[in-house]
Design a protein around this nucleic acid. Structure first.
Length: 556
RNA sequence: GCGCCCGUAGCUCAGUGGAUAGAGCGUCGGACUUCGAAUCCGUGCGUCGUAGGUUCGACUCCUACCGGGCGCGCCA
């Protein structure tokens, strides 16, 4: 249990005691909130519960606070001091001894510090990136990859189970168009007359695929007599080519999917019909002009949506419903999708369908990853897939590196549009927050190397309170102790940027400590205490970076 | 026209209905014979887009408007 939860329990117990002993009246009290005061002088934790109760039980906030305060500070090793502040805030300070014990605990737990263990973990399925298999991935996919993988890491660290999944849209018009585009390029390379479709895929990579097919599959390809069969063959090969290159790019980005789910498999296995029957069974479908229509307005959509056309072909939505029905049948407790900003209007209809299928509204959650503006030399690079002049995820990995790009993508809240200054990220590494963090880690490793050279080995049991009683050390101890609740918070709200913000604060507090205090000295107790503190910082930073998929180098 | 995201320091952005709104970068000035100066310290006069509302209290919630971005197919 993290500190915030412990304090919450202490306050609940204090309330119950105060009421049972007749100091406070029985009433409908508001929900207890635990806050982090903006200023450290107001405590490590604070609750406005006395203020909020005042109106309900018609007593002054200060009076209520005074009563609660006396119960809160009794008999526990967690809380050092409790103060009542002017309007009626109850401000709580954690005891230094507790912080020291926590530091020793960090060193014992090492890699598992911050990790929660749940008796009944939930099974999550998180689907993200799901880029079309019609070409290389762009930077929006890269952001989704970093976000999705980090959220999955957070959920795992928070004690639940996650499967990462990629949906391959290998069905429908765009696939035909891809085949025709590749076929045209093959003809071009063979010096045959060709017609390139206007709305086809113009990117250079289409030529690469054409050449790859000529080099490896020409006899098979030439076996087809008509253009239609050739285009189908080309399309299948192109999807194979693109999917495997996407897989490689993602693996190089430290993102590995458990499942690559092909849309075509839904149609092949009759999943679409199955999902359709399920919707019809509960009267979510009506027929109009020969089309089957889903009553999505029941679930808050603007209008009902066609799912089966009058010629009997399912729409994309229907396939997507079948896909999510399949996920439900696989027994997950929670489904999370990460989509690009251009699909926002699609949430209502699909989440409506999931509700229709499982009868619950907390089963499915869509997170929207906002757009990425690539900035080059102060100018926004406009991306257009069809014109082919987009910046790829591969270029990003090659030019900026995995650590920097992953960190940049998650360091802002998902809701904000991200300006990614490519030139800056490359130009000068010292301007990067990533390096600031990694430097703190490397610096500590360097101290341990020096200690080893001097034949000093860490013995945390020697750590003493007096050496830790300075502002710089206390700030660090408090941040380290907060790490588990930062993880829970970030995991439960699906907000990975909270971890990067936290790590920046920790690194900053460490660099300050370093500037003020010499770790290795003649004094054995001080040396051991400071080394223990350093080790706890190193472990916390490393574990935090691990969640972000960023490396923690021992030297730079 | 409708829907969603954004609007906070020169720039990029944090900020759960709470106390005097903060970080990084940039600017300018300091700090290494000693564990890594990729660091630290100092330096900020901001109509929190505007106007109302809700309440003990609003950057945060509600309404309207302004500005930027993205959607609004029986495409996928």
């Amino acid at each position: 249990m993290n500190i915030k939860n412990k304090i919450n329990n202490i306050i609940i117990n204090s309330f119950e005691k105060a009421i049972s002993e007749g100091k406070l009246p029985v009433a409908e009290y508001p929900v207890i909130k635990i806050e982090y005061p903006r200023e450290s002088k107001f405590g490590d934790y604070s609750t406005p519960i006395a203020l909020e109760s005042a109106r309900i039980i018609k007593r002054s906030p200060m009076e209520i606070g005074e009563i609660l305060k006396n119960y809160i500070c009794k008999n526990n090793d967690l809380i050092g001091e409790v103060y009542l502040a002017k309007p009626g805030f109850i401000n709580i300070f954690i005891s230094l001894n507790y912080l020291k014990e926590n530091m020793l605990d960090v060193i014992k737990q090492r890699e598992s510090y911050g990790r929660q263990i749940k008796d009944n973990p939930l099974r999550y399925n998180i689907e993200f990136v799901s880029a079309n298999p019609t070409g290389p991935m762009n930077v929006v996919s890269a952001r989704a990859a970093a976000l999705g993988d980090t959220i999955a890491n957070l959920i795992e660290t928070n004690g639940d189970l996650v499967d990462r999944e990629f949906y391959v849209n290998d069905f429908g018009n765009q696939v035909n168009l891809l085949g025709i585009s590749v076929l045209a390029r093959i003809k071009e390379l063979n010096n045959e007359p060709f017609h390139f479709p206007e709305d086809g895929y113009h990117g250079e990579y289409i030529k690469d695929i054409a050449r790859w097919i000529i080099d490896n599959y020409s006899s098979e390809f030439n076996g087809f007599k008509d253009d239609e069969s050739k285009a189908v063959f080309a399309a299948n090969k192109a999807i194979e080519f693109n999917t495997s290159s996407q897989k490689k790019d993602l693996a190089d980005f430290n993102v590995n999917f458990k499942t690559w789910f092909r849309e075509s498999s839904l149609h092949a296995k009759g999943e679409v019909t199955k999902a359709m029957k399920r919707l019809e069974q509960y009267d979510h479908i009506y027929v109009e002009d020969g089309k089957k229509i889903f009553r999505s307005t029941v679930f808050g959509d603007d209008k009902d949506r066609v799912v089966i056309r009058d010629d009997g072909r399912p729409t994309y939505l229907m396939a997507d419903i079948a896909y999510h029905n399949d996920k439900l049948e696989r027994g997950y407790d929670r489904l999370i999708d990460i989509w690009g900003p251009d699909h926002h209007g699609y949430i209502a209809r699909l989440s409506g369908a999931v509700q229709a299928l499982c009868g619950r509204n907390d089963m499915f959650r869509v997170l929207i990853s906002q757009q990425v503006n690539l900035i080059m030399e102060g100018e926004t690079v406009k991306m257009s897939k069809r014109l082919g002049n987009f910046s790829t995820m591969r270029e990003l990995i090659d030019e900026v590196g995995v650590d920097v790009s992953r960190f940049f993508f998650i360091m802002r809240s998902m809701d904000s549009h991200l300006d990614f200054d490519l030139a800056l990220a490359k130009k000068n590494s010292s301007e990067n927050p990533v390096f600031y963090l990694q430097y703190a880690h490397a610096r500590i490793c360097s101290i341990f190397k020096e200690a080893e050279r001097r034949n000093i080995s860490l013995n945390p049991e020697k750590a003493d309170l007096e050496t830790l009683s300075n502002n710089e050390a206390v700030v660090i101890l408090k941040l380290i102790a907060k790490f588990p609740e930062e993880i829970s918070d970030a995991a439960e709200t699906y907000e990975p940027h909270k971890i990067s913000t936290f790590l920046m604060r920790l690194a900053q507090s460490y660099h300050r400590f370093y500037a003020e205090h010499r770790v290795l000295s003649e004094d054995d107790i001080k040396t051991q205490t400071n080394l223990a503190l350093c080790d706890a910082v190193r472990i916390t930073i490393k574990n935090g970076l691990h969640i972000l998929g960023v490396s923690a180098p021992e030297s730079m």
